[in-house]
Design a protein around this nucleic acid. Structure first.
Lengths: 167, 167
DNA sequence: AATAAATACTTGAAAATGTCAACTATTGAG
DNA sequence: CTCAATAGTTGACATTTTCAAGTATTTATT
């Protein structure tokens, strides 16, 4: 993916693929969404690498450090990951001493995932860097535009639109 | 991914993971971007399946059917895929009689990728379905909001923001 | 109350996708 | 002219995703 970080495909940079931005694909909202996401994921991987985290482990750790006390199933649904992927992520974090599994008093089939002190410290530190990177990355948008983007993406991301697609 | 199409993780649906939306992750623009994209990809796969296409093959075919006459390298940059992935995609489309490689008169190292008549017919048909699905999926946003979203995503997707992250 | 179906977590196999190295032929820079 | 860079390709290897099946527990049905 690192090799994909050049902006050769972007309009206005004098590169070879800029002609393709005038195709229907280049003007398709879903494509823009995917491409923006790909760029964002790439930068997140770079930002989180010094902490030994990746986007997904950072998300799990961050939620585990909150007051939410999530079950694995909740993490799976929220992050849209297969339960077995959650197992693997938690195994890694647990192995690194960053989270622990506790029996869920609400349901004996379930665990809740809780950050250790070390996990909390690490995610606190990582979060600062993430926030800085977010600020820089979205800085091309005005404050107003960022709020509008948040509002729109929140609706799309929560599946408010999915009721149509699933019908 | 089909098993992930339920809205269990979404707020307001009475599901188990809605508490997680009040965590910092649930309010992170980058996370919303990723989640919206995941939902969009899932629906695109469903929409394109009847045509024997997936998001990426649809994109390649669509561009090949345009007047752009893209080289493989241009496709690779634009779609942010490794050149070997482009080879594989084109092999499949070529095998299905949907595109062909032609020597690029501008550069003897290169090919241009061009849709066949069958490819054009298919992508025309698929495009209609995609447009309908896009309309339905983004319908939760007003016309104004969609334009704003387009503008914001275009800037983010073209890497206008990447200059900061790469520095 | 008993039985059946559904669910949480787990393991592991198989399938799919991504990354990278190395090659030939061609182009561009010095 | 020489050499470095590039386009496309092949294929090996690494990583991720998907899916099946198992145990234990909870929920729904009879």
């Amino acid at each position: 993916m690192a090799a994909q970080q050049t902006n050769d495909g972007d309009p206005g940079t004098g590169s070879s693929a800029e002609r393709l931005w005038s195709t229907s694909v280049g003007n398709d909202l879903a494509f823009l969404l995917a491409r923006a996401n790909a760029l964002s994921l790439a930068r997140m991987h770079t930002v989180l690498a010094p902490f030994g985290l990746r986007t997904r482990s950072y998300s799990v750790l961050s939620i585990a450090a909150s007051d939410a006390r999530p079950s694995q199933r909740e993490l799976s649904d929220f992050l849209r990951l297969d339960p077995s992927q959650i197992v693997s992520l938690i195994d890694q974090l647990e192995g690194a001493g960053l989270v622990r599994r506790e029996p869920d008093p609400r349901d004996r089939r379930a665990n809740v995932v809780v950050a250790t002190d070390a996990g909390r410290a690490l995610v606190e530190e990582a979060r600062r860097t993430v926030i800085d990177s977010d600020r820089a990355w979205f800085a091309v948008l005005s404050e107003d535009e960022r709020e509008q983007l948040f509002s729109a993406l929140h609706r799309l991301a929560t599946g408010a639109a999915a009721q149509f697609a699933d019908a």
